[in-house]
Structures are given as C-alpha cells and as structure tokens.
C-alpha cells in the first residue's frame, strides 16, 4: 500500500467534497427553507464560472475577478428569485421540477449565445499556479490547496451564520417551520430572496473555483446538479451539517473509487473488463450509498427536526 498516494487521494477527495458542499449548501438552504426544488441551481454554478472567467480577462487578476463575480452571481440569483422562483413557491414539487428544467434550458442557451460554445480557460496568477510540497513525495497543486482552504472557511462561515446570527436563527426556524417565521412578523419575502441570493453566490463560488481547473463550459452545471441532490438527500434536506458530511463522504467515495477500484477489480477479472467496469462501478457507488442511507433512514442522515 502506497500511503503517500492514499494521502493525496484523500486530499483530492476532500477537495471535491468541499466543492460539492459549496453547491449543496445553497441548494439545501433553498430546499429546506423555501421548500423549493431548484434543478437550475447548477446553472448558477455555471454562471459564476463564466462571469468570473470574463472578469479574469478584464482585470487580469483571478482573485479580483472572484471578488467582483460573487456579488454579480448573487444579483443573478436575486433576479431569478424575483422573476421566476417566487411565483412557484405555492405550487407543488412537480411544478418546480418542470419549471426549473425550463429555466436550465433558457440559461444554458443564453450562456451559449453570450459566451459561445468554446468554453473559457481561466489563467491563474503564478503564485497559485505552482505546487506545494507537504512532505517528502506529497506534492499538491497550490490551487487545489486554495480550494480546500476556501471551502473550509466558507463552511466555517456558514456554520457561524446559521448558528450564531439572527439571520441564521430565522433560517433554522424557517427550515423547520415556515408559518411560524412569518407569524413572527418577519418579512418572509425578503428572507427568501436573501437565502436564494446566498445560495446562488455559494454555487457561483464553486463554479469560479473549478473554472481554472476544468474551464468554464456549457452544461457544466447539469453535470454537478445530480450529485448535489444526492448530497443534500443523503445529508437530510435543510441540514447544513448533513450537507457537509455527505459532501465529504461522496467526494471521498468518488475519488477513492476512481483511484483504487480498477486495481481491485483487476484481481478478479481481465484487465480490459476491469478497465470498463471500474469507472462504471465507481460512478454507481454514490447512488448505492444514497439508496442504502434512505433504506435505513428514509429522511437522510440528519433529518430536520420538525416538518
């Protein structure tokens, strides 16, 4: 067993998990508080990536671009809430699903019209483009370390926000009982819009952080959204803690599966069959995880206390 490799893969898994958490945290908030199923949440991830990519070329600085792109993505989220989402809250989940699917088609096409199909490669400043040696043999790209760092800090910030602020108190109350919050005389409309915009910024941030690695590209949101839904379902809808734990678990399962499954399969089948089966089975594992969790705990790992 190569422990350095195992360590690196765990780090890669945690990094993937944190990105998933950024997208999932917003989704679980919107779902938990607004009771709104937003398939188009992944589109905000894509918008974040494209806005940040364009701004990087405009400013010539990636970090500055992220700082400016964040509020822009928040505004986009705010507008989507005002124009579309708000009118859907009193309809049922099926209507949400259909309308936000329509929204995905609209946003994807608009993105294609604005930015073209080529995708944008995002350059990094030199100090982020190198590598860091953690110990002998364990070298990791510095940017991946930055993702881990910012993912953890955002997670910490969110925990503080949810647990120790007035807004957080309302959010927690809203997740378990919507009518109570509005009975308290809180402007629920504003609270909802704020939560939606916050979710958009979190998803957008994930898109910005991934774009220097995989480029900003059309359809990137649709690839992450389903995994994100798995995360919030496994974690329990509305639970920030659940989303965090589930995201890390799923990040690790995915990465470790890709790393070691082929070798394990190679022990019992031909190399060719193993190389086809391994990626498929590693893709399957997160769904097996979800099915097992739901079979045992039908409301996820950390179900909201009152519903």
């Amino acid at each position: 067993m190569d422990y350095t490799l195992l360590f690196l893969q765990v780090l890669n898994g945690v990094q993937l998990g944190l990105l998933l958490f950024l997208v999932a945290s917003g989704l679980t908030l919107v779902f938990g508080i607004l009771d709104f199923v937003n398939l188009a949440h992944g589109s905000l991830y894509m918008i974040g990536a494209f806005v940040c990519a364009s701004l990087t070329f405009l400013f010539g600085n990636f970090l500055l671009a992220v700082l400016v792109a964040l509020p822009i993505t928040g505004v986009v989220g705010f507008v989507i809430e005002r124009v579309v989402a708000r009118n859907l809250y009193d309809k049922d989940h099926l209507d949400h699903v259909l309308a936000t699917f329509g929204l995905i088609l609209v946003i994807d096409t608009l993105t294609q019209i604005i930015w073209g199909v080529e995708g944008i490669a995002v350059p990094l400043p030199a100090w982020l483009d190198g590598q860091v040696q953690l110990f002998e043999g364990a070298v990791i790209p510095s940017f991946r370390l930055l993702i881990i760092g910012s993912g953890l800090s955002v997670a910490a910030g969110l925990f503080w926000l949810v647990n120790y602020t007035r807004l957080g108190m309302l959010i927690r109350a809203g997740a378990s009982n919507r009518t109570m919050v509005s009975a308290l005389g809180i402007d629920i409309q504003t609270l909802f819009a704020l939560v939606f915009a916050l979710g958009a910024m979190l998803a957008g941030l994930a898109g910005m952080l991934i774009s220097p690695i995989t480029e900003a590209s059309i359809g990137m949101g649709n690839q992450i959204i389903i995994t994100t839904f798995v995360v919030i379902i496994v974690g329990g809808i509305g639970s920030m803690k659940g989303a965090f734990i589930a995201a890390i678990i799923i990040g690790l399962i995915d990465t470790l599966g890709r790393s070691f499954l082929a070798d394990i399969f190679g022990l019992v089948m031909s190399a060719d069959a193993a190389s086809t089966a391994a990626p498929a089975v590693s893709g399957m594992m997160i769904f097996i995880l979800m099915a097992v969790v739901l079979a045992l705990k039908p409301q996820g790992l950390f179900p909201p206390k009152v519903r």
Partner: peptide, 25 residues
C-alpha cells in the same frame, strides 16, 4: 420513503441500472 426522498431513491436505482449496463464491456 416518501415525497422527494422517493423521487431521489428511484433515481438512485435508475442510475445503478445505468451504470450496470455501462459496465458491460
């Protein structure tokens, strides 16, 4: 399971079938 959890668990089973056929070289 109920409601949206049912929706997601059926999707999980669907995806398992998808990856099953994907793995058949």
């Amino acid at each position: 399971t109920k409601g949206v959890y049912f929706l997601m668990i059926t999707m999980a089973f669907g995806q398992m079938a998808y990856y099953f056929f994907l793995s058949l070289d």
